[in-house]
């Protein structure tokens, strides 16, 4: 089993290295992530303080930077080299907590839009800025996790291996997405429970996912708004495997 996993991770690594023109040596390798069986209910893990997570081991997962989308884009610096991941199972849920250092807090509270139709109001809600982007994070895993199966393409899955993407945005909140390859990501219109806090240059975001079986590959992504991150312009991990 272990050999197969390594082989799968290795092939995933080479695939993305080839596709994106990066050398495999610069990619942070995948690893096995242990999942704690927590005695706390999901709500405590989601909304409680650090106490609920104290007993859960942390794994440092290396992040990579996608290359520029345009030839004319400046390559972005690797400002967020690592995300700390904690995983806990409780009550049929998988709680994923991501912590990362980001000195720039790119989040706003959008103005409230009145419920009345705009044509009935003299004043409309303005667009306050058109050039800001917000911090965000995501957890991706195969829609149908199968033990020992090939991992989906790291670029948002592929036609045979669709993926679920639990995406959280510091301004727009949590939204569930699905994809079957690069450029196919679509919003399902559904949300999911998530909780985020920002303190001393550190984001801590907790995602509530459905429970996933051992051996499921998961990957993480982080967007830094001040680096104008959005879309594939982001930090990403290679596939990791749940213990």
């Amino acid at each position: 089993m272990r050999t197969r996993q390594l082989m799968i991770l290795g092939s995933g690594l080479l695939a993305c290295a080839g596709m994106w023109g990066q050398t495999a040596a610069t990619m942070a390798a995948g690893q096995t992530l242990s999942v704690a069986a927590s005695s706390f209910p999901a709500d405590n893990l989601l909304n409680g303080g650090p106490a609920a997570w104290n007993q859960v081991a942390v794994k440092h997962v290396g992040l990579n930077r996608t290359p520029p989308l345009y030839d004319t884009d400046e390559p972005a610096a690797l400002e967020i080299p690592v995300v700390d991941v904690r995983l806990a199972r409780t009550g049929g849920k998988l709680l994923v907590q991501l912590n990362w250092h980001d000195p720039t807090h790119d989040a706003i509270t959008l103005p409230e839009v009145p419920k009345t139709p705009p044509e009935t109001r003299f004043l409309k809600v303005p667009t306050e800025a058109d050039d800001r982007f917000f911090d965000a994070a995501a957890v991706m895993f195969p829609t149908k996790p199968e033990a020992g199966a090939m991992t989906p393409s790291l670029q948002m899955g592929d036609a045979e291996h669709p993926v679920e993407i639990y995406y959280w945005n510091a301004t727009r909140g949590a939204m569930l997405m699905q994809a079957q390859g690069r450029g196919t990501t679509r919003r399902t219109g559904q949300s999911f429970p998530a909780n985020a806090s920002y303190q001393n240059g550190q984001w801590s975001v907790t995602f509530e996912l459905p429970d996933l079986p051992p051996g499921t590959p998961v990957a993480f992504a982080v967007w830094n708004g001040s680096q104008k991150d959005r879309d594939g312009r982001k930090y990403f991990s290679v596939w990791q495997v749940l213990e």
Partner: peptide, 9 residues
């Protein structure tokens, strides 16, 4: 463009 968010459009 007489809607929310479209003032400057």
């Amino acid at each position: 463009t007489d809607r929310d968010g479209t003032g400057y459009m």
